[in-house]
Each structure stands twice: as C-alpha cells, then as structure tokens.
Amino acid sequence: MSTQINAAETLLSVSTAPYIKSEDTVSKIMWKVNLALAPAAIFGVIYFGVPALINIVVSIIAAVAAEYAVQKIRKVRITAFDGSAFLTGLLLAMCISPEMPPYMTAIGSVIAIVIAKHSMGGLGQNIFNPAHIGRAALMVSWPIAMTTWSTIKTPVDAVTSATPLGILKLQGYSELLETFGGRSELYKALFLGMRNGSIGETCTVLLVLGGLFLVWKKIINWQIPVVMIATVGILTWVFGPEGFFTGDPVFHMMAGGLIIGAFFMATDMVTAPITKKGQIVFAIGAGMITSLIRLKGGYPEGVCYSILLMNCVTPLIDLVIKPRIYGTGR
C-alpha cells in the first residue's frame, strides 16, 4: 500500500449509531421549497410589474436581516442564510398586494421573523406560520393598503381594481361572470393567473406544479393540499348562493390564496400536525374555516386565518392522533 496508516496513532471518535445519515438537510429542504415557489413569484413580477419585484426583494431582505440580527443578539448559531428566513420573506410577499408600500412589507416581514418565529424560540419552535402572522399583522395595521389592488384589464376589457373574491362578496356571482365575460373566461383567468390578487397567489397552474414538485421530492404530503382544497370545493358547492348545490366549486378552489395556502402554508412542517392522519384533520378544519369566512364572514378571503386558527389546534391533534405502537392495541 502506498499510504499505510499506523493504527496505533489513529484517534477514534465514538458516538451512538446510526453512523450513516440520509443526505437531506434542513437547508436543502428550505431551498427546495423556495425553488418550488419561484415560478409563481416570477409570474407575479411579470404580471404586476416593478412594485411586485420591489416588495418581494424588500420582504426577503428584511426577513433575513431580522433573523441575522436576532441570532446575533441571542448569541446563537447564525442560520439566517439556511433558506428558512428567505422562505418566510418570499411567502409573505407572495401573500400581499403588489401595491403595498414597501416599508409596510418590511415591517410585516420583521414581525414574522422576530415575533412569530424567534420569540417562540426560533426554527421549529413557533406555533404559527410566521409568514401568515406577518400578513395578519399587516391586515390589522393597514387594512386599506392591504386591500388596495392593482388596476387590471379583464378579458372583456373591463377595468377592475378588485379581486375576484372581492367582486363576489360585494357585487355577487353574476357581476363576477360579467366582469370576466363568462364562466370559462373566468376559469381561464384564474388558472393562468390573469386576475387581481396578491403577488404570488394568482397563477394556479404554476403553484400546483411547484406543489407537485414538493410532493415528488417528498417534502410535503399530498394529503394536506388535496384535502383542504377539496373541502373548500365541496362546502362552497353545497352552500351556494341560490340554495344547496348551487355554488361554483371550481371558482372557489382556484380563487384567492387557497392554492398557495394549501400547498405552501398549510404544509409548513413546523406548524402542521406530524402524522398523516393528523394532517388530514388539519386540512379539513382549514378548508371548513376558509369556506365559512368566504361564505358568511366579513372578509372576502379566509385562507390565512383558517390556517392560523388550525395552527392553534396542531399540538392537540398531535396529542390525540398518534400511530399505533407495534404490539399494542392502540
């Protein structure tokens, strides 16, 4: 042998098995989620223009900077660049209006990181989805800015500065169809993202593709998005405006922030139940609350609050729903 190692001079380390580990890391997972969100975010920038880009960049920088600062102050290991704070910033920006003044966005982002994440103890310890807390904080602080949307042209050249769900809530379903020029035009606009809304929530097709990428990479389970979206579809269909079974489930499933919420927020590992069964319960609950707010509440959209409310229940779900232990009855 060319390079013989003298066994007697070798210092060995000891630890508990297993000695081999899978190659995935927390950071790799976070960057994959960011990657999955990228197409829909890029679409938002192209569709809504420079203000959307500014908001995304500001939100991400504020989140990463806030995390870095908090970790410096707490004197803990700096993990600000592991993709997790980046993800919070990106998600928050994707869930707000492109017309939002950037300083407000930055404040929302700092609230998400400092209050929702680090005051609970940092990564893995937070009860609520940080991006959604940031969004909720902005909603109560600047309700008008949060509901001022871009002015866009619909396929029939109608000019609108409301979201489809907003039109539905204030003017009704027939007005909504009129604005978009018919049902199939409405569906097409929702599917492709040619409609008003938050920066990253509009393009259903890109969000679903991103979500499927995460399912394929085994980062999320399909159960949460499928069950949550289906619950909203069923409830909005059953409890329609003209009586039972007159609703438009296709519209509701693609409208608002449901797709981004179901694929990217309700699936947040930290704040969703840990078992698949628990995740199904969580998704049903989130779907029910979303439908309830949309159909009966004062807000046109309820995805954000539904997920935050279900986040509160997660520890309870995890306590009640556990796998059966081998060799025991339960």
Binding site: T3, I5, A8, L12, S15, A17
Partner: peptide, 25 residues
C-alpha cells in the same frame, strides 16, 4: 485485510445502523 489506507474517524463493531463505534483497535 491490507491495513488502513486512510485515517478512519470511526471503527465500528457491526453495521453502520446499529453497530458500536470502538475507542480502540
């Protein structure tokens, strides 16, 4: 078995999943 060609960090008794790292050879 021809000795060591690289400096090992661990010498394991058993397999890598349930074995025991040894402090000495």
């Amino acid at each position: 078995c021809g000795g060591l060609t690289k400096t090992p960090d661990k010498i394991i008794n058993g397999g890598p999943m349930m074995g025991y790292a040894q402090g000495s050879m």
